[in-house]
Write a protein that binds this DNA or RNA. Structure first.
Lengths: 193, 193
DNA sequence: CGATTCTTTGAAAACAGTCAATCTGTGTGG
DNA sequence: CCACACAGATTGACTGTTTTCAAAGAATCG
């Protein structure tokens, strides 16, 4: 798993062999069964997670039992609850594997040490956070200004890879519509083209 | 205006007198009339903006003419279009003063130099981006999982200061509901308590 | 195969949007 | 001081969309 991470990160950031070995020395490898949770809502999220295989989701459950997906993380992407990780507060999210997955974990402290030592890694994380902000802003715009159909369009455009891998009711939960509504949208979508 | 910025930033970041003078030397001060725009949708956003007095909004206009507010920036907060600023691409947002305002501006290049030189400033911006991500995530959750009424509640809780200063139809535009709906919500709100 | 899980469908109800009109307060110019 | 225009807020009636509830059909996992 770390090997997959290594080839990914080498392509993304300018790291020496030494940097890689440093990261490896504190990395934790883990295999997740389908439906296994890495963090449960209410727990403290202790790791920053890189997915080398499979697919995770981070979702919040409301008092009424409804679930809202904040984030999908397929292979070669990251997951965590940044707020819980940074502050040690209980997480609002459950992070669950949707497929059998392989992940690499780092604790907050190790990560702080790594980003403090490896400037290339810090620069990479900065880029990552910046890109995350952009996609959150796009999502806010999409979600406050669009009909359910436009949101679905948007999702198809921006997350075609995810669309093919997750049950529809999770797409619905990501978009903030019911599964029934999404189902009807798709029908008219197919009819319309 | 830079003086107001100075006292704010000194409280937020660990900066030497020298750092401050460096920032001052490239800062641009500007006064904005009510309704004056600093960036227009389609323009490139050339500055990072600190508001020392007044209130700005950043909003996107859709093809159908509807406006969606991404961000309010009262005094002692920042505004910009990060994507446009970083990439030099046309901005999706118009940044407009809602009140007579005073702002301090830095160009991308000056900013890059400043953050590269002043580590305390870099650390402060990192914190800022991190906090911005958190609030965007909260907003996404609020907006995909709540009725119009709950969104309004949320806004009241998190932005009481803004609520008192902007016309209601802008709150509506921030929340993604029509002004009529918001008006009706407020009525039931008052009746209910 | 049997049991889940996922998806679709229908009908009714709740919700939010649209259109049009009115009301309010503010500020301007005669 | 008044008349007027203007921007904002509210209301009513209507329309359209989305949710809810209930059921059934399809696909998938063990």
């Amino acid at each position: 798993m770390f090997n997959e991470f290594e080839s990914y990160i080498r392509a993304q950031a300018n790291l020496s062999d030494n940097d890689i070995e440093l990261m490896r020395s504190v990395a934790i490898e883990k295999t997740l069964r389908r439906k296994e949770c890495l963090v449960r809502q209410g727990d403290v999220c202790r790791y920053k997670i890189f997915v080398t295989k499979g697919l995770l989701r981070a979702y919040a459950t409301r008092d009424d039992g409804s679930e809202h997906i904040m984030h999908f993380s397929p292979e070669n992407s990251w997951s965590t609850d940044p707020e819980s990780l940074a502050n040690g507060t209980p997480s609002n999210y459950t992070i669950e594997a949707l497929e059998r997955s392989e992940v690499v974990l780092w604790t907050k402290n190790d990560l702080r040490y790594l980003t403090g030592t490896i400037t290339g890694l810090k620069a990479y994380f900065d880029k990552l956070i910046y890109a995350g902000g952009n996609s959150l802003r796009h999502r806010v715009l999409s979600v406050i200004g669009s009909t359910a159909e436009e949101k679905y369009d948007d999702f198809r455009k921006n997350h075609a890879d995810i669309l093919a891998r997750v049950p529809l009711h999770m797409v619905a939960s990501y978009l903030g519509v019911t599964r029934e509504t999404l189902s009807r949208i798709r029908r008219s979508y197919i009819a319309g083209k």
